[in-house]
Design a protein around this nucleic acid. Structure first.
Lengths: 111, 111
DNA sequence: AAGCCTATGTGCGTCATGCACTTAGTGTTA
DNA sequence: TAACACTAAGTGCATGACGCACATAGGCTT
């Protein structure tokens, strides 16, 4: 889940890790992700050729490593989308089975 | 995903690990799960009090360890259902964002 | 006797994450 | 000026989950 979300964020707007952490955890208010995890995912994706980084000097603070998505990254994102569609279907099937059984057996939980 | 599916299977029909492996991988034809993973999950869930096991001798082969779900296991299953609903929503949000962007930018992929 | 199916488990390596910490530049405040 | 806070990136260590391979063992078939 983390990798595709990062790829999508970078695709929407190429940026650096620190801002990605903010954006990521803004959507994920509940279960926040550690900075270290984000940084490591970015470096991993760069090693795999899904993103490219270049340092940018700033006047207001430390230098930033900016990320942009590559063609391979787009392919990876498309692949991840397919997997997520599949995963969504599996979850739906599971929830359906659960609801059916709960309805029959009376482990009622409907809201 | 493995744990809730096992809990649901056991809830539907208390049974032993070997059969759970068959049932599990029958639904999951694509990405099959290792027997070791199933067995370890079952033992873990027993340690956490979600299931109870008892040995049953058979005449046709080696003894089986039969599993039944506990009240705590039912609670855990309900909790997992809530998490999966949440997770499903996150995936849907992601897919929506992706589709919107793909539509606008022309990274067309609609099928 | 050899091989297969049922049935449960373990040992080892790998990978991903959380938690905590480090480094470093800049600005603010007591 | 010293302490603190914010930005920005990263690492070290422990933990946890999984795959792969292997071990063990009962019973049936060829």
């Amino acid at each position: 889940m983390i990798q595709p979300m990062l790829l999508l964020l970078i695709l929407k707007k190429p940026t650096h890790g620190y801002e990605l952490i903010q954006s990521f955890n803004a959507l994920h208010e509940d279960e926040i992700v550690e900075p270290g995890t984000i940084y490591r995912n970015l470096r991993r994706m760069e090693k795999e050729g899904f993103v490219l980084s270049n340092w940018e000097a700033t006047e207001t603070g430390p230098a930033r490593r900016n990320y942009a998505i590559t063609r391979a990254g787009l392919k990876a994102l498309q692949g991840a989308v397919l997997k997520l569609k599949q995963q969504k279907k599996e979850i739906e099937d599971f929830l359906t089975e659960y609801s059916d059984l709960a309805a029959k057996e009376g482990h009622s939980d409907e809201n």
